[in-house]
C-alpha cells in the first residue's frame, strides 16, 4: 500500500468508520421501530398468538421448517402455510392443521418424518393463530408463489 496512507490513517478508518456505521445502523433501527407497527400488525397479537409462538419455539419447529425463509430447509416454508393449506379461511386451516398434526409421523417409507408432538386441541388452535398472524406480516411480498 502507498506510503502516503499511514498506519495511523488506517487506524482512524477502523475506529472512526466502525463507530460511524454502527451509529448509522442504530439510527436506521430506530426508524424501523417506528415503521414496524404498520407492517407487523401487532395489534392483532392475541394471547393465543403469543401461546402459539411459544409452542413453535418449545417444539423446535424451526429445526426442520423455515418461517419467512429462515430456519432449516428440510421441510416446507410455513409463513404462508395458511394461504397454501387454508386458502385464506381460518376455520378450514385449523381443521387441516389439527388433522395434519394428528397423523404424524406418516408411514410412507423413506419420506422425511415429522415427529408426533401430541398437541392438545387448544394448542393446535394457538399454533394456527400464530401462523395465521405471521402470514399477514408485510414481508415485501415474499415468497414468490404459494409453494414457499
Amino acid at each position: 500500500m502507498a506510503d502516503r496512507f499511514t498506519k495511523g490513517m488506517a487506524r482512524n478508518v477502523y475506529y472512526g468508520g466502525g463507530v460511524f456505521v454502527f451509529l448509522l445502523l442504530v439510527g436506521l433501527t430506530f426508524d424501523t421501530m417506528l415503521e414496524l407497527p404498520k407492517r407487523d400488525h401487532r395489534e392483532n397479537i392475541t394471547q393465543s398468538v403469543a401461546n402459539g409462538k411459544h409452542l413453535w419455539e418449545k417444539n423446535n419447529c424451526v429445526g426442520c421448517h423455515s418461517l419467512m425463509g429462515e430456519g432449516a430447509y428440510f421441510a416446507p416454508e410455513l409463513a404462508n402455510v395458511f394461504d397454501r393449506r387454508g386458502g385464506g379461511d381460518e376455520q378450514v386451516f385449523k381443521g387441516f392443521l389439527g388433522a395434519w398434526m394428528a397423523m404424524q409421523p406418516m408411514s410412507v417409507p423413506d419420506r422425511r418424518k415429522m415427529p408426533q408432538f401430541n398437541l392438545t386441541d387448544k394448542e393446535v388452535e394457538e399454533l394456527a393463530d400464530f401462523l395465521i398472524w405471521t402470514s399477514r406480516i408485510n414481508d415485501n411480498d415474499w415468497p414468490p408463489n404459494i409453494e414457499g
Binding site: 477502523y14 466502525g18 456505521v21 448509522l24 436506521l28 414496524l36 419467512m68 425463509g69
Partner: peptide, 20 residues
C-alpha cells in the same frame, strides 16, 4: 475497517423478507 463498514449495515440483506 472495510469488514465493519460493509458488514454492519450489510445486515440489511437479512431484513428483506421478514417485516422491515
Amino acid at each position: 475497517a472495510l469488514a465493519l463498514i460493509s458488514g454492519l449495515v450489510g445486515m440489511g440483506h437479512h431484513y428483506f423478507w421478514i417485516g422491515p
